[in-house]
Design a protein around this nucleic acid. Structure first.
Lengths: 251, 251
DNA sequence: CAGTGGTCTAGACCACGCT
DNA sequence: GCGTGGTCTAGACCACTGT
Protein backbone atom coordinates (compact mmCIF):
# COMPACT_ATOMS: atom_id res chain seq x y z
CA UNK A 1 0.00 0.00 0.00
CA UNK A 2 2.96 2.32 -0.22
CA UNK A 3 2.28 5.26 -2.50
CA UNK A 4 5.42 5.16 -4.60
CA UNK A 5 4.74 8.32 -6.57
CA UNK A 6 3.00 11.16 -4.80
CA UNK A 7 4.56 14.48 -5.64
CA UNK A 8 1.45 16.23 -4.30
CA UNK A 9 2.67 15.53 -0.78
CA UNK A 10 4.80 18.47 0.31
CA UNK A 11 6.61 16.48 2.98
CA UNK A 12 10.07 15.16 2.37
CA UNK A 13 10.26 11.61 1.07
CA UNK A 14 11.96 10.34 4.22
CA UNK A 15 9.18 11.91 6.31
CA UNK A 16 6.55 10.07 4.34
CA UNK A 17 8.38 6.77 4.63
CA UNK A 18 8.82 7.30 8.37
CA UNK A 19 5.17 8.25 8.73
CA UNK A 20 4.00 5.12 6.91
CA UNK A 21 6.19 2.84 8.98
CA UNK A 22 5.32 4.62 12.22
CA UNK A 23 1.62 4.22 11.48
CA UNK A 24 2.06 0.51 10.85
CA UNK A 25 4.01 0.09 14.07
CA UNK A 26 1.57 2.01 16.24
CA UNK A 27 -1.44 0.29 14.68
CA UNK A 28 0.02 -3.11 15.34
CA UNK A 29 0.37 -4.06 11.69
CA UNK A 30 4.03 -4.34 12.53
CA UNK A 31 3.92 -5.89 15.99
CA UNK A 32 6.78 -5.71 18.50
CA UNK A 33 9.59 -8.01 17.50
CA UNK A 34 8.62 -8.15 13.85
CA UNK A 35 11.03 -7.16 11.10
CA UNK A 36 10.62 -4.08 8.97
CA UNK A 37 10.98 -4.48 5.21
CA UNK A 38 14.65 -4.44 4.21
CA UNK A 39 16.17 -1.23 2.94
CA UNK A 40 16.33 -2.73 -0.53
CA UNK A 41 12.63 -3.51 -0.38
CA UNK A 42 11.75 -0.01 0.86
CA UNK A 43 13.84 1.52 -1.91
CA UNK A 44 11.81 -0.52 -4.38
CA UNK A 45 8.46 0.33 -2.80
CA UNK A 46 8.99 4.04 -2.59
CA UNK A 47 11.01 4.41 -5.74
CA UNK A 48 13.58 6.47 -3.89
CA UNK A 49 17.27 6.00 -3.36
CA UNK A 50 18.73 4.48 -0.25
CA UNK A 51 19.42 7.79 1.49
CA UNK A 52 15.84 8.77 2.37
CA UNK A 53 15.05 5.21 3.39
CA UNK A 54 17.92 5.20 5.85
CA UNK A 55 16.99 8.67 7.06
CA UNK A 56 13.47 7.47 7.82
CA UNK A 57 14.80 4.46 9.71
CA UNK A 58 17.18 6.69 11.62
CA UNK A 59 14.28 8.92 12.62
CA UNK A 60 12.23 6.03 13.95
CA UNK A 61 15.26 4.78 15.83
CA UNK A 62 15.66 8.15 17.51
CA UNK A 63 12.02 7.91 18.51
CA UNK A 64 12.75 4.63 20.23
CA UNK A 65 10.37 2.66 18.04
CA UNK A 66 12.85 0.32 16.37
CA UNK A 67 16.22 -1.35 16.82
CA UNK A 68 18.49 -2.10 13.91
CA UNK A 69 21.06 -4.88 13.81
CA UNK A 70 23.76 -5.09 11.23
CA UNK A 71 23.42 -8.21 9.13
CA UNK A 72 20.01 -9.12 10.53
CA UNK A 73 17.54 -6.36 9.91
CA UNK A 74 15.44 -3.71 11.58
CA UNK A 75 12.91 -4.76 14.19
CA UNK A 76 10.06 -3.16 16.06
CA UNK A 77 11.24 -2.62 19.58
CA UNK A 78 9.89 -4.83 22.30
CA UNK A 79 8.85 -2.68 25.20
CA UNK A 80 11.16 -4.04 27.87
CA UNK A 81 9.71 -4.89 31.25
CA UNK A 82 9.96 -1.83 33.38
CA UNK A 83 10.49 -2.06 37.09
CA UNK A 84 9.53 0.27 39.82
CA UNK A 85 12.11 2.14 41.76
CA UNK A 86 9.90 3.07 44.60
CA UNK A 87 10.16 5.60 47.31
CA UNK A 88 7.07 4.68 49.19
CA UNK A 89 6.57 6.81 52.25
CA UNK A 90 9.09 4.35 53.75
CA UNK A 91 6.55 3.51 56.39
CA UNK A 92 8.59 0.69 57.80
CA UNK A 93 12.01 1.80 58.77
CA UNK A 94 13.26 -1.74 58.94
CA UNK A 95 12.53 -2.09 55.26
CA UNK A 96 15.05 -0.37 53.07
CA UNK A 97 12.67 -0.32 50.14
CA UNK A 98 14.10 2.99 49.28
CA UNK A 99 17.46 2.11 48.06
CA UNK A 100 16.95 0.36 44.81
CA UNK A 101 19.15 -2.52 45.92
CA UNK A 102 16.29 -4.89 46.60
CA UNK A 103 14.39 -4.00 43.49
CA UNK A 104 17.41 -4.77 41.40
CA UNK A 105 17.45 -8.30 42.74
CA UNK A 106 21.03 -8.90 43.52
CA UNK A 107 23.64 -8.12 40.95
CA UNK A 108 25.73 -5.22 42.03
CA UNK A 109 29.13 -4.25 40.79
CA UNK A 110 31.37 -2.14 43.00
CA UNK A 111 33.33 0.22 40.77
CA UNK A 112 34.70 2.49 43.43
CA UNK A 113 34.90 2.56 47.20
CA UNK A 114 37.39 5.13 48.35
CA UNK A 115 37.69 8.06 50.70
CA UNK A 116 38.20 11.25 48.79
CA UNK A 117 37.89 15.02 49.05
CA UNK A 118 34.30 16.11 48.42
CA UNK A 119 33.87 17.95 45.13
CA UNK A 120 32.07 21.28 45.34
CA UNK A 121 28.65 19.99 44.34
CA UNK A 122 28.73 17.09 46.76
CA UNK A 123 29.98 19.27 49.60
CA UNK A 124 27.16 21.65 48.88
CA UNK A 125 24.55 18.93 49.06
CA UNK A 126 26.00 17.61 52.30
CA UNK A 127 26.33 21.12 53.74
CA UNK A 128 30.03 20.55 54.36
CA UNK A 129 33.08 22.64 53.47
CA UNK A 130 34.46 21.78 50.06
CA UNK A 131 37.23 19.23 50.31
CA UNK A 132 35.90 17.50 53.43
CA UNK A 133 36.72 13.81 53.30
CA UNK A 134 33.86 11.63 52.13
CA UNK A 135 33.52 7.98 51.28
CA UNK A 136 32.87 7.92 47.54
CA UNK A 137 31.24 4.84 46.13
CA UNK A 138 30.28 3.98 42.61
CA UNK A 139 28.00 1.05 41.90
CA UNK A 140 26.49 -0.43 38.82
CA UNK A 141 23.32 -2.44 39.22
CA UNK A 142 22.18 -5.13 36.83
CA UNK A 143 18.69 -6.31 36.01
CA UNK A 144 18.44 -9.62 34.21
CA UNK A 145 22.16 -9.42 33.51
CA UNK A 146 21.82 -6.07 31.83
CA UNK A 147 23.21 -2.91 33.40
CA UNK A 148 20.38 -0.64 34.45
CA UNK A 149 21.58 1.90 36.99
CA UNK A 150 24.73 3.79 37.87
CA UNK A 151 25.04 5.18 41.36
CA UNK A 152 27.58 7.58 42.81
CA UNK A 153 27.06 8.08 46.49
CA UNK A 154 28.87 10.03 49.16
CA UNK A 155 28.90 9.80 52.96
CA UNK A 156 31.00 12.02 55.21
CA UNK A 157 34.02 9.92 56.00
CA UNK A 158 34.03 10.58 59.71
CA UNK A 159 30.65 8.87 59.94
CA UNK A 160 31.90 5.60 58.53
CA UNK A 161 35.56 5.46 59.61
CA UNK A 162 36.26 2.23 61.43
CA UNK A 163 32.78 0.81 60.82
CA UNK A 164 31.70 -2.13 58.65
CA UNK A 165 30.29 0.34 56.16
CA UNK A 166 33.83 1.23 55.23
CA UNK A 167 34.42 -2.26 53.88
CA UNK A 168 33.27 -2.86 50.30
CA UNK A 169 33.09 -6.58 51.07
CA UNK A 170 29.88 -5.87 52.94
CA UNK A 171 28.13 -4.79 49.73
CA UNK A 172 25.43 -5.30 48.80
CA UNK A 173 24.28 -4.27 52.27
CA UNK A 174 21.00 -5.89 53.21
CA UNK A 175 18.31 -3.24 53.30
CA UNK A 176 20.29 -0.75 51.26
CA UNK A 177 21.72 2.56 52.23
CA UNK A 178 18.94 3.38 54.64
CA UNK A 179 19.77 0.30 56.72
CA UNK A 180 23.43 1.09 56.35
CA UNK A 181 22.96 4.54 57.80
CA UNK A 182 20.81 3.16 60.56
CA UNK A 183 23.68 0.83 61.53
CA UNK A 184 25.69 4.00 62.07
CA UNK A 185 23.05 5.34 64.39
CA UNK A 186 21.78 7.79 61.81
CA UNK A 187 18.06 8.21 61.58
CA UNK A 188 16.98 9.34 58.13
CA UNK A 189 13.92 11.55 58.41
CA UNK A 190 13.58 13.01 54.97
CA UNK A 191 14.71 12.35 51.45
CA UNK A 192 14.91 14.94 48.71
CA UNK A 193 15.06 13.94 45.10
CA UNK A 194 15.57 16.02 42.01
CA UNK A 195 14.67 14.08 38.91
CA UNK A 196 15.84 15.23 35.50
CA UNK A 197 15.73 13.49 32.15
CA UNK A 198 18.16 13.79 29.30
CA UNK A 199 19.86 11.81 26.57
CA UNK A 200 22.79 9.74 27.81
CA UNK A 201 26.40 10.74 27.35
CA UNK A 202 28.43 8.40 25.12
CA UNK A 203 29.98 6.92 28.29
CA UNK A 204 26.60 6.22 29.84
CA UNK A 205 25.35 4.78 26.58
CA UNK A 206 28.17 2.29 26.85
CA UNK A 207 28.04 1.62 30.59
CA UNK A 208 24.29 1.08 30.58
CA UNK A 209 24.23 -0.77 27.28
CA UNK A 210 21.53 1.55 25.98
CA UNK A 211 20.24 1.50 22.45
CA UNK A 212 19.99 4.83 20.64
CA UNK A 213 16.86 6.81 21.33
CA UNK A 214 16.63 5.88 24.99
CA UNK A 215 16.83 8.71 27.53
CA UNK A 216 18.04 8.37 31.12
CA UNK A 217 16.82 9.60 34.45
CA UNK A 218 19.37 11.72 36.24
CA UNK A 219 18.43 11.69 39.90
CA UNK A 220 20.05 13.63 42.70
CA UNK A 221 19.02 12.20 46.04
CA UNK A 222 19.94 13.45 49.47
CA UNK A 223 19.17 11.68 52.75
CA UNK A 224 18.60 13.91 55.74
CA UNK A 225 18.80 13.03 59.42
CA UNK A 226 17.00 15.23 61.91
CA UNK A 227 19.68 17.88 61.95
CA UNK A 228 21.74 17.49 58.83
CA UNK A 229 22.19 15.72 55.49
CA UNK A 230 24.01 12.43 55.97
CA UNK A 231 24.40 11.06 52.47
CA UNK A 232 23.85 12.06 48.90
CA UNK A 233 23.86 10.16 45.67
CA UNK A 234 23.46 10.65 41.99
CA UNK A 235 21.71 7.97 40.02
CA UNK A 236 21.74 7.56 36.27
CA UNK A 237 19.00 5.16 35.34
CA UNK A 238 18.16 3.50 32.04
CA UNK A 239 14.93 5.21 31.06
CA UNK A 240 13.45 2.23 29.28
CA UNK A 241 13.71 -0.10 32.24
CA UNK A 242 12.38 1.89 35.15
CA UNK A 243 9.38 3.81 36.25
CA UNK A 244 10.07 5.91 39.30
CA UNK A 245 7.24 5.49 41.72
CA UNK A 246 6.46 7.95 44.48
CA UNK A 247 3.89 7.86 47.20
CA UNK A 248 3.64 11.18 48.92
CA UNK A 249 1.59 11.81 52.03
CA UNK A 250 -0.26 15.10 52.14
CA UNK A 251 -0.26 16.49 55.63
CA UNK B 1 43.78 20.92 15.23
CA UNK B 2 41.59 18.49 13.39
CA UNK B 3 43.50 15.43 12.28
CA UNK B 4 42.49 15.33 8.64
CA UNK B 5 44.23 12.06 7.83
CA UNK B 6 44.35 9.38 10.49
CA UNK B 7 43.58 5.99 9.04
CA UNK B 8 45.04 4.40 12.16
CA UNK B 9 41.85 5.30 14.01
CA UNK B 10 39.44 2.40 13.66
CA UNK B 11 36.37 4.49 14.41
CA UNK B 12 34.16 5.69 11.61
CA UNK B 13 34.95 9.12 10.26
CA UNK B 14 31.65 10.59 11.45
CA UNK B 15 32.37 9.25 14.94
CA UNK B 16 35.71 11.00 15.02
CA UNK B 17 34.22 14.25 13.82
CA UNK B 18 31.44 13.99 16.41
CA UNK B 19 33.98 13.18 19.12
CA UNK B 20 36.12 16.18 18.27
CA UNK B 21 33.16 18.55 18.26
CA UNK B 22 31.69 17.04 21.41
CA UNK B 23 35.00 17.47 23.20
CA UNK B 24 35.15 21.11 22.18
CA UNK B 25 31.60 21.70 23.34
CA UNK B 26 32.03 20.01 26.70
CA UNK B 27 35.36 21.69 27.34
CA UNK B 28 33.90 25.10 26.65
CA UNK B 29 36.03 25.78 23.59
CA UNK B 30 32.69 26.02 21.83
CA UNK B 31 30.59 27.82 24.45
CA UNK B 32 26.78 27.71 24.51
CA UNK B 33 25.32 29.86 21.77
CA UNK B 34 28.43 29.77 19.62
CA UNK B 35 28.35 28.54 16.05
CA UNK B 36 29.98 25.33 14.91
CA UNK B 37 32.14 25.46 11.80
CA UNK B 38 30.00 25.25 8.67
CA UNK B 39 29.58 21.91 6.93
CA UNK B 40 31.75 23.16 4.10
CA UNK B 41 34.47 24.05 6.56
CA UNK B 42 34.26 20.67 8.30
CA UNK B 43 34.42 18.90 4.95
CA UNK B 44 37.60 20.81 4.25
CA UNK B 45 39.12 20.17 7.69
CA UNK B 46 38.48 16.47 7.76
CA UNK B 47 38.97 15.81 4.06
CA UNK B 48 35.78 13.80 3.95
CA UNK B 49 32.62 14.22 1.95
CA UNK B 50 29.53 15.91 3.26
CA UNK B 51 27.81 12.73 4.36
CA UNK B 52 29.92 11.90 7.41
CA UNK B 53 29.97 15.56 8.45
CA UNK B 54 26.19 15.67 8.47
CA UNK B 55 26.02 12.32 10.24
CA UNK B 56 28.25 13.65 13.00
CA UNK B 57 26.09 16.75 13.36
CA UNK B 58 22.98 14.59 13.44
CA UNK B 59 24.51 12.52 16.23
CA UNK B 60 25.27 15.55 18.36
CA UNK B 61 21.79 16.86 17.74
CA UNK B 62 20.30 13.59 18.98
CA UNK B 63 22.45 13.98 22.08
CA UNK B 64 20.86 17.34 22.69
CA UNK B 65 24.14 19.23 22.42
CA UNK B 66 23.38 21.40 19.39
CA UNK B 67 20.56 22.99 17.43
CA UNK B 68 20.74 23.49 13.70
CA UNK B 69 18.93 26.19 11.77
CA UNK B 70 18.55 26.15 8.04
CA UNK B 71 20.24 29.09 6.43
CA UNK B 72 21.94 30.20 9.64
CA UNK B 73 24.15 27.49 10.98
CA UNK B 74 24.61 25.03 13.80
CA UNK B 75 24.85 26.31 17.34
CA UNK B 76 25.80 24.92 20.72
CA UNK B 77 22.60 24.58 22.67
CA UNK B 78 21.96 26.98 25.49
CA UNK B 79 20.88 25.02 28.53
CA UNK B 80 17.42 26.44 29.04
CA UNK B 81 16.43 27.52 32.51
CA UNK B 82 14.84 24.58 34.20
CA UNK B 83 12.09 25.01 36.71
CA UNK B 84 11.07 22.89 39.59
CA UNK B 85 7.81 21.06 39.57
CA UNK B 86 7.73 20.35 43.23
CA UNK B 87 5.76 18.00 45.32
CA UNK B 88 6.94 19.12 48.69
CA UNK B 89 5.30 17.15 51.43
CA UNK B 90 2.51 19.69 50.89
CA UNK B 91 2.88 20.77 54.49
CA UNK B 92 0.50 23.66 54.11
CA UNK B 93 -2.80 22.54 52.73
CA UNK B 94 -3.75 26.07 51.81
CA UNK B 95 -0.84 26.17 49.44
CA UNK B 96 -1.43 24.26 46.25
CA UNK B 97 2.27 24.01 45.50
CA UNK B 98 1.59 20.61 44.15
CA UNK B 99 -0.27 21.37 41.04
CA UNK B 100 2.21 22.90 38.72
CA UNK B 101 -0.14 25.78 37.98
CA UNK B 102 1.65 28.27 40.17
CA UNK B 103 5.09 27.24 39.04
CA UNK B 104 4.10 27.78 35.46
CA UNK B 105 3.35 31.40 36.23
CA UNK B 106 0.09 31.96 34.56
CA UNK B 107 -0.34 30.97 30.97
CA UNK B 108 -2.70 28.11 30.69
CA UNK B 109 -4.59 26.99 27.63
CA UNK B 110 -7.75 25.00 28.06
CA UNK B 111 -7.92 22.45 25.26
CA UNK B 112 -10.74 20.33 26.59
CA UNK B 113 -13.25 20.52 29.41
CA UNK B 114 -15.97 17.98 28.87
CA UNK B 115 -17.75 15.19 30.68
CA UNK B 116 -17.02 11.87 29.07
CA UNK B 117 -17.01 8.13 29.71
CA UNK B 118 -13.88 7.08 31.55
CA UNK B 119 -11.51 5.05 29.38
CA UNK B 120 -10.33 1.77 30.88
CA UNK B 121 -7.02 3.05 32.19
CA UNK B 122 -8.54 6.10 33.84
CA UNK B 123 -11.35 4.08 35.37
CA UNK B 124 -8.77 1.70 36.76
CA UNK B 125 -6.80 4.49 38.37
CA UNK B 126 -9.94 5.97 39.89
CA UNK B 127 -11.19 2.55 40.99
CA UNK B 128 -14.42 3.08 39.10
CA UNK B 129 -16.27 0.90 36.61
CA UNK B 130 -15.18 1.51 33.05
CA UNK B 131 -17.43 4.01 31.36
CA UNK B 132 -18.30 5.97 34.49
CA UNK B 133 -18.76 9.63 33.66
CA UNK B 134 -15.77 11.79 34.42
CA UNK B 135 -14.88 15.41 33.76
CA UNK B 136 -12.02 15.21 31.25
CA UNK B 137 -9.79 18.23 31.02
CA UNK B 138 -6.80 18.88 28.84
CA UNK B 139 -4.54 21.81 29.54
CA UNK B 140 -1.38 23.12 28.02
CA UNK B 141 0.87 25.22 30.22
CA UNK B 142 3.31 27.76 28.92
CA UNK B 143 6.55 28.97 30.43
CA UNK B 144 7.98 32.16 29.03
CA UNK B 145 5.55 31.87 26.13
CA UNK B 146 6.80 28.42 25.24
CA UNK B 147 4.64 25.33 25.76
CA UNK B 148 6.11 23.18 28.51
CA UNK B 149 3.53 20.79 29.86
CA UNK B 150 0.48 18.90 28.67
CA UNK B 151 -1.99 17.71 31.26
CA UNK B 152 -4.94 15.36 30.92
CA UNK B 153 -6.86 15.11 34.13
CA UNK B 154 -10.00 13.30 35.17
CA UNK B 155 -12.40 13.78 38.08
CA UNK B 156 -15.50 11.64 38.64
CA UNK B 157 -18.30 13.74 37.21
CA UNK B 158 -20.67 13.31 40.12
CA UNK B 159 -18.15 15.09 42.33
CA UNK B 160 -18.16 18.25 40.25
CA UNK B 161 -21.65 18.38 38.76
CA UNK B 162 -23.27 21.72 39.53
CA UNK B 163 -20.16 23.16 41.17
CA UNK B 164 -17.90 25.99 40.00
CA UNK B 165 -15.30 23.39 39.10
CA UNK B 166 -17.46 22.39 36.19
CA UNK B 167 -16.98 25.77 34.57
CA UNK B 168 -13.81 26.16 32.48
CA UNK B 169 -14.06 29.91 32.96
CA UNK B 170 -12.78 29.40 36.47
CA UNK B 171 -9.44 28.13 35.17
CA UNK B 172 -6.75 28.64 36.13
CA UNK B 173 -8.06 27.88 39.59
CA UNK B 174 -6.06 29.61 42.31
CA UNK B 175 -4.12 27.01 44.25
CA UNK B 176 -4.41 24.37 41.58
CA UNK B 177 -6.23 21.10 41.63
CA UNK B 178 -5.60 20.48 45.30
CA UNK B 179 -7.49 23.65 46.17
CA UNK B 180 -10.11 22.78 43.63
CA UNK B 181 -10.76 19.43 45.26
CA UNK B 182 -10.80 21.04 48.67
CA UNK B 183 -13.56 23.35 47.47
CA UNK B 184 -15.54 20.18 46.80
CA UNK B 185 -14.99 19.04 50.35
CA UNK B 186 -12.44 16.47 49.30
CA UNK B 187 -9.41 16.12 51.49
CA UNK B 188 -6.44 14.79 49.56
CA UNK B 189 -4.29 12.68 51.84
CA UNK B 190 -1.90 11.00 49.50
CA UNK B 191 -0.52 11.42 46.03
CA UNK B 192 0.99 8.67 43.95
CA UNK B 193 3.17 9.43 41.01
CA UNK B 194 4.69 7.15 38.42
CA UNK B 195 7.38 8.91 36.48
CA UNK B 196 8.60 7.53 33.18
CA UNK B 197 10.85 9.05 30.56
CA UNK B 198 10.78 8.54 26.82
CA UNK B 199 11.21 10.30 23.53
CA UNK B 200 8.22 12.39 22.49
CA UNK B 201 5.72 11.28 19.90
CA UNK B 202 5.60 13.44 16.76
CA UNK B 203 2.44 15.06 18.11
CA UNK B 204 4.06 15.93 21.41
CA UNK B 205 7.15 17.18 19.60
CA UNK B 206 4.85 19.63 17.86
CA UNK B 207 2.59 20.53 20.80
CA UNK B 208 5.51 21.14 23.14
CA UNK B 209 7.68 22.79 20.51
CA UNK B 210 10.54 20.47 21.36
CA UNK B 211 13.78 20.35 19.47
CA UNK B 212 15.03 16.92 18.42
CA UNK B 213 16.98 15.05 21.07
CA UNK B 214 14.86 16.20 23.99
CA UNK B 215 13.03 13.52 26.00
CA UNK B 216 9.82 14.06 27.97
CA UNK B 217 8.62 13.06 31.39
CA UNK B 218 5.48 10.99 31.29
CA UNK B 219 3.89 11.28 34.71
CA UNK B 220 0.83 9.47 35.96
CA UNK B 221 -0.45 11.12 39.11
CA UNK B 222 -3.36 10.09 41.25
CA UNK B 223 -4.79 12.06 44.17
CA UNK B 224 -6.30 10.04 46.98
CA UNK B 225 -8.75 11.13 49.65
CA UNK B 226 -8.97 9.13 52.84
CA UNK B 227 -11.15 6.46 51.35
CA UNK B 228 -10.77 6.59 47.60
CA UNK B 229 -8.95 8.14 44.63
CA UNK B 230 -10.58 11.43 43.65
CA UNK B 231 -8.65 12.56 40.62
CA UNK B 232 -5.99 11.35 38.27
CA UNK B 233 -3.90 13.04 35.65
CA UNK B 234 -1.30 12.34 33.09
CA UNK B 235 1.37 14.93 32.51
CA UNK B 236 3.72 15.09 29.56
CA UNK B 237 6.48 17.49 30.44
CA UNK B 238 9.26 18.96 28.30
CA UNK B 239 12.35 17.26 29.69
CA UNK B 240 14.67 20.17 29.08
CA UNK B 241 12.64 22.67 31.06
CA UNK B 242 11.80 20.91 34.27
CA UNK B 243 13.37 19.12 37.15
CA UNK B 244 10.87 17.19 39.19
CA UNK B 245 11.54 17.83 42.82
CA UNK B 246 10.35 15.58 45.61
CA UNK B 247 10.63 15.89 49.33
CA UNK B 248 9.67 12.68 51.02
CA UNK B 249 9.28 12.28 54.76
CA UNK B 250 10.56 9.03 56.22
CA UNK B 251 8.31 7.86 58.99
C1' DC C 1 23.26 37.79 -3.83
C1' DA C 2 26.35 34.34 -1.41
C1' DG C 3 26.43 31.11 2.22
C1' DT C 4 24.06 28.08 5.10
C1' DG C 5 21.75 23.69 6.17
C1' DG C 6 18.01 20.17 4.12
C1' DT C 7 17.13 16.72 0.79
C1' DC C 8 18.15 13.45 -2.78
C1' DT C 9 20.67 10.44 -6.32
C1' DA C 10 23.54 6.59 -7.85
C1' DG C 11 26.83 4.55 -7.20
C1' DA C 12 30.75 1.91 -4.01
C1' DC C 13 32.88 -1.03 -0.37
C1' DC C 14 32.67 -3.04 4.23
C1' DA C 15 31.08 -5.79 8.54
C1' DC C 16 28.03 -8.89 10.13
C1' DG C 17 24.57 -12.91 10.49
C1' DC C 18 22.82 -16.75 8.59
C1' DT C 19 22.60 -21.02 6.03
C1' DG D 1 27.81 -16.94 -0.50
C1' DC D 2 24.20 -13.93 -0.11
C1' DG D 3 21.41 -10.61 2.07
C1' DT D 4 21.42 -7.45 5.68
C1' DG D 5 22.56 -2.87 7.61
C1' DG D 6 26.83 0.60 8.17
C1' DT D 7 29.78 3.82 5.97
C1' DC D 8 31.39 6.78 2.38
C1' DT D 9 31.85 9.47 -2.16
C1' DA D 10 30.75 13.15 -5.47
C1' DG D 11 27.88 15.15 -7.27
C1' DA D 12 22.90 17.92 -7.59
C1' DC D 13 19.02 21.07 -6.42
C1' DC D 14 16.23 23.37 -2.94
C1' DA D 15 14.84 26.48 1.15
C1' DC D 16 16.15 29.69 4.16
C1' DT D 17 18.95 33.72 6.28
C1' DG D 18 21.69 37.20 5.94
C1' DT D 19 23.74 41.48 3.50
Amino acid sequence: MAPSIDSADPRAVYQRIAHDLRTQILSGDLPPGSALPSETELVRRYGSSRGPVRQAISLLRSEGLIDSHQGRGVFVRQRPMTRRLSIEGVADRTNGALDSVEDVDGQLEVLRYTPTAAPAEVADRLALPEGTRVLARRFRFFVEDRPALLSDSYIPYDLVKGTPVEDPENEPWPGGMLAQLRSLGLDVREITEDVATRTPTPDELHELGLRPGIPVFDVTRTLHAADRPVATSRLVIAGDRYVLSYRIPVF
